Simulated assay, not measured.
Amino acid sequence: MRGRLLIGVVLTLTFVVGCTSPFDRVGGDAAPAGSPSASTSPPAPSDPASATPSPTAPASPTPATRTTGPAKPLSEIRRTDWPNAVIDNLKFCGGSDDTVRFRNGSNGAAVPCKILPGGASPVYAEFIVEEPAIAPSTEDALILVELGNPGSRRAQALVPVQLSDTGGKRNAWPVIVGGSGDRPDEIETFTSYRVVGENVRATVRKLDGRTETREWRKADGGGTWERTTVG
């Protein structure tokens, strides 16, 4: 039984350390709320032996040994209040001003642009090339936005977001746009997305309802994206 407890502790600590390391070049997944989490393990079957009461062991006089250090502070990009974020250069959302100001998840326009619709989550990773090359590395974000009203033409896009040199602004790079049909609400949706190295990989629900995995890589220094082969 003690061996099982020790294994559980080790696994728990590994998960905590992985989640609090802010500069790993490891992407994550984001999906609408209610989607099953890949990090959630099914409950282990009950152990008949554990159901049998046993005498209480005496307390050990030796204090527990601390095996983990203090949690690292969140990176600046992770502190972003996305439903109320201000993002520059986000031309996908339309309007005469390239700066988009979200309030409670929407820019409030007649043809609204919504940030992280359907309970989607941001992905954090260092995947946008820093300029100049000697600039300190920082995490970037990949978020989902949707343009349009229900019942009319809509489109979704994955948006890479990088901090400005001063760290005070959030700047959007060229976006990855999903397809849309001729009829209202006929759009391709990103059901999950992640960063793989410096590429973006996503699961897309196509217009015919089927899903496929797509991957994009940066085609030039300006951050333009092009489809590539998965694998």
Results as ranks from 00 to 15, higher is better:
58 P>L: 06
187 I>T: 12
127 F>C: 00
78 R>A: 15
163 L>A: 05
129 V>H: 12
120 A>N: 11
219 A>D: 09
107 N>H: 06
23 F>N: 13
76 E>R: 14
96 S>Q: 11
105 G>N: 07
189 T>N: 02
155 A>P: 02
182 D>T: 14
139 E>F: 00
155 A>M: 09
181 G>V: 05
209 G>K: 02
4 R>H: 13
109 A>I: 02
17 V>L: 09
73 P>R: 04
213 T>H: 02
92 F>A: 00
124 Y>M: 11
91 K>P: 01
153 R>H: 11
70 P>C: 01
63 P>M: 00
197 G>I: 04
180 S>A: 12
215 E>S: 08
143 I>D: 11
75 S>C: 02
109 A>N: 12
157 A>R: 04
185 D>V: 02
101 R>P: 01
121 S>P: 00
100 V>Q: 15
96 S>F: 09
223 G>C: 01
108 G>S: 08
77 I>E: 02
27 G>D: 04
103 R>E: 09
15 F>W: 10
63 P>R: 00
32 P>C: 03
133 A>L: 13
86 V>Y: 01
202 A>H: 03
129 V>G: 06
130 E>K: 12
85 A>V: 04
68 T>L: 15
133 A>D: 14
111 V>M: 13
65 T>R: 08
57 A>F: 03
97 D>F: 00
151 G>C: 09
227 R>G: 01
210 R>L: 12
162 Q>D: 15
210 R>S: 15
217 R>Q: 08
115 I>T: 11
231 G>D: 05
46 S>K: 08
76 E>Q: 12
60 S>P: 01
30 A>T: 14
42 P>K: 04
226 E>V: 13
1 M>H: 10
108 G>F: 05
176 I>L: 13
20 T>E: 14
200 V>D: 07
95 G>P: 06
106 S>E: 10
88 D>K: 14
93 C>R: 06
106 S>M: 04
218 K>E: 14
51 A>T: 13
141 A>Y: 02
84 N>K: 00
93 C>F: 09
1 M>C: 02
174 P>Q: 05
89 N>W: 03
134 I>C: 12
119 G>R: 02
156 Q>D: 00
70 P>Q: 07
94 G>W: 07
174 P>F: 05
51 A>V: 10
43 P>M: 12
217 R>F: 03
161 V>S: 09
54 S>A: 15
201 R>Q: 14
67 T>D: 06
125 A>D: 13
24 D>M: 10
95 G>L: 10
115 I>H: 10
56 T>V: 12
167 G>P: 13
94 G>N: 03
190 F>Y: 05
42 P>V: 11
165 D>K: 15
156 Q>A: 04
102 F>R: 06
41 S>W: 14
231 G>K: 11
28 G>V: 08
196 V>C: 04
148 G>H: 06
124 Y>C: 06
144 L>D: 06
89 N>Y: 07
56 T>R: 06
26 V>R: 13
120 A>G: 00
149 N>H: 05
36 P>M: 09
9 V>I: 08
110 A>M: 04
42 P>R: 09
53 P>I: 04
200 V>I: 15
80 T>D: 03
123 V>H: 04
48 P>W: 03
70 P>S: 04
54 S>L: 10
10 V>L: 15
16 V>A: 11
229 T>D: 12
231 G>P: 01
197 G>Y: 02
